[in-house]
Amino acid sequence: MIYEEVITLKTSRILICISRLLYPFMLLFGFYIIINGHTSPGGGFQGGAILATAILITYFIDPDRITNLNLLIKIEKVLFILILVIGSISFFTKNVFFTNFISIESSTTYKKIFLIALNFFIGIKVALGLVTVFSTFIKEGRS
């Protein structure tokens, strides 16, 4: 029957093995997309979604791995404030909000620091948010 397939899907050994093999590469790919977001396709949101998929795959390996959801939500809130702060640094250097805080005359090597930092924090925030939503969905109704 179909419902038995759904239930055995979680405990299938092949799936667990493949997930273990795939997990580090997915993490690597997600971070690659986030960190190269300013020059190549992708960016914070896309890389964050891939990171979230990688973390969610660990539910196949070990369902009880993520236990402390409140901590995840707290980190997400802190990251949100951090993103706002990074955006506001330019007020002290250029007297304008939400622009690059490094002056225009400097070379691109320094100017891209702003983009990389924003992409990185946005990526982690998106990943944490998706993991939180998904974990509440899985744990809803279970003790």
């Binding site: 419902y3 759904v6 239930i7 899907l9 997309i33 396709p41 992708g42 960016g43 949101f45 896309q46 979604a49 891939i50 979230a52 998929t53 969610l56 998706l130 998904f134 969905f137 899985i138 109704g141």
Partner: peptide
Amino acid sequence: PDVALAEVAIGSAIMPLIFIISISR
């Protein structure tokens, strides 16, 4: 390619997982 990356990550990985879990529930 930007949108394609987001579509692959969300449309073909996260959404089916959510559907499968709700079906088994």
